[in-house]
């Protein structure tokens, strides 16, 4: 059987919030080591990959690999019933389960709610993500990245990200004019979560749809920092660490000059 007990149900709520607007139906692959999810948006422009290792759970048992086809809107309805400090227990049968049980327990043990979510059949293309050497890595405050994406959305549909030497510049333009926001590599680091790190091998200059970046920033509550990995010939990677026990990575194909 598959059984996973998460002490802080708030984490599962945050994970779901960060994927559900991008991927409606997702395959949650469970094995002895971790739960993983990979799903593409319907236009095949963006992809989300989530990894949550067994050590994130207070109790984790997966006797045989099992794949749970989750409708994220249905799962979200259940998790809306959970408080952030509720314990969440996921349970499913080993072989081709058609449903998954969720049990919510209040911290003081005085309230227990149980739900059964019907699983869905999902025929999806799984993509092979190659190992890539990126030309630039930018690590920054996740809140600052969210702010920049939101602010620039007022000016245009796309953001041009330019990395050179110790700067990263975010630019957007439209009918109202042009907006540029430049962040410089932090000279001193007092608080890691507020500092900016630009690790550059080669300059990059790429343009991305802001609509998707704004969806990626739904993961902001998961981590204080975010890392952007860029190369001229590869999709952007936006990564939020889930503590020491996993990550959410978003991949976004660039806009290209024809």
């Amino acid at each position: 059987m598959f059984e996973a007990k998460l002490q802080q149900g708030g984490l599962l709520k945050k994970i779901l919030e960060s994927v559900k607007d991008l991927v409606v139906d997702g395959l949650w692959d469970c094995d002895g080591a971790a739960i993983t999810l990979q799903g593409m948006d319907s236009s095949h422009v963006a992809l989300v990959e989530m990894l949550l290792r067994a050590e994130a759970f207070e109790h984790y048992r997966c006797d045989r690999n099992v794949t749970l086809g989750m409708n994220h809107n249905h799962l979200s309805k259940i998790l809306k019933c959970a408080n952030n400090d509720d314990i969440v227990i996921l349970k499913a049968a080993d072989q081709n389960p058609d449903s998954c049980s969720l049990i919510l327990e209040s911290k003081n043990g005085e309230k227990t709610s149980d739900f059964v979510v019907s699983l869905v059949r999902i025929d999806t293309d799984q993509l092979g993500i190659p190992e890539t050497e990126y030309s630039a890595h930018v690590k920054m405050s996740s809140g600052e990245f969210q702010r920049i994406c939101r602010d620039l959305s007022q000016f245009g549909d796309a953001v041009q990200i330019t990395c050179s030497k110790q700067d990263v510049k975010f630019s957007s333009s439209g009918e109202t004019g042009k907006a540029n926001i430049t962040l410089t590599h932090s000279a001193t680091v007092d608080k890691e979560e507020e500092s900016v790190t630009v690790d550059l091998k080669e300059p990059v200059d790429l343009t991305f749809a802001l609509r998707f970046l704004n969806l990626f920033t739904k993961a902001t509550p998961i981590s204080d920092t975010v890392t952007l990995s860029l190369s001229q010939e590869a999709p952007l990677v936006v990564e939020y660490k889930i503590g020491d026990s996993g990550h959410i990575r978003y991949f976004l194909a660039p806009k290209i000059q024809e």
Partner: peptide, 14 residues
């Protein structure tokens, strides 16, 4: 002219 690339152009289907 700016077009949107697709992920399949970079990642192979498994």
């Amino acid at each position: 002219m700016v077009n949107q690339a697709y992920l399949g152009e970079y990642f192979g289907d498994q």
